[in-house]
């Protein structure tokens, strides 16, 4: 699936929720079932320090595709991370660099990526692109 196909799929899934409580309950589920990041990857270099919560992000290249793993200490943030990974992970650096993330906005979670939230997610998105750029330069 392309990045945009996955985004559309997520939007479709979220359109089922009629109220925000269900939406957040789902995010909490996603957060709780997110694969934990390798303990060895929980190093300061991978830490994105938000004021409210912290995010760890690691990336590896596999067969020309970038694979992301990430985690947070806050479950809702983890839920959103899980969506970001589902959308962005496993694509080529070029695809990631060209991607425009519209699903967050469409599923009504835009506020969590606003610079004032300080939960580390906005920096995570930037960092994802930087990783893609770095892998592209290497290849």
């Amino acid at each position: 699936m392309t990045i945009n196909e996955t985004q559309d799929q997520v939007i479709e899934e979220f359109s089922e929720f009629s109220d925000w409580m269900d939406k957040y309950a789902y995010l909490i589920d996603l957060g709780n079932s997110l694969d934990p990041i390798d303990e060895k990857a929980k190093i300061p270099q991978n830490l994105i320090e938000g004021c409210q919560s912290r995010v760890w992000l690691d990336a590896a290249e596999n067969d020309g595709k970038v694979v992301f793993t990430a985690e947070s200490d806050a479950v809702i943030v983890k839920g959103i991370i899980s969506l970001l990974i589902r959308v962005m992970s496993g694509h080529t650096p070029d695809e990631i660099l060209e991607a425009e993330l519209y699903f967050i906005d469409q599923i009504g979670l835009k506020e969590h990526l606003s610079p004032t939230r300080a939960n580390g997610l906005l920096s995570m998105v930037k960092q994802i692109k930087l990783y893609a750029l770095a892998f592209k330069a290497k290849s």
């Binding site: 957040y24 004021c51 409210q52 919560s53 200490d73 479950v75 809702i76 943030v77």
Partner: peptide, 22 residues
């Protein structure tokens, strides 16, 4: 051990303004 950000985010949705963090 519910994270303060998680609790604060949901309390906010319920119209309750509390401070979370350090």
């Amino acid at each position: 051990d519910i994270h303060h950000f998680d609790m604060g985010t949901l309390l906010d949705k319920l119209g309750i303004a509390v401070r979370t963090g350090h």
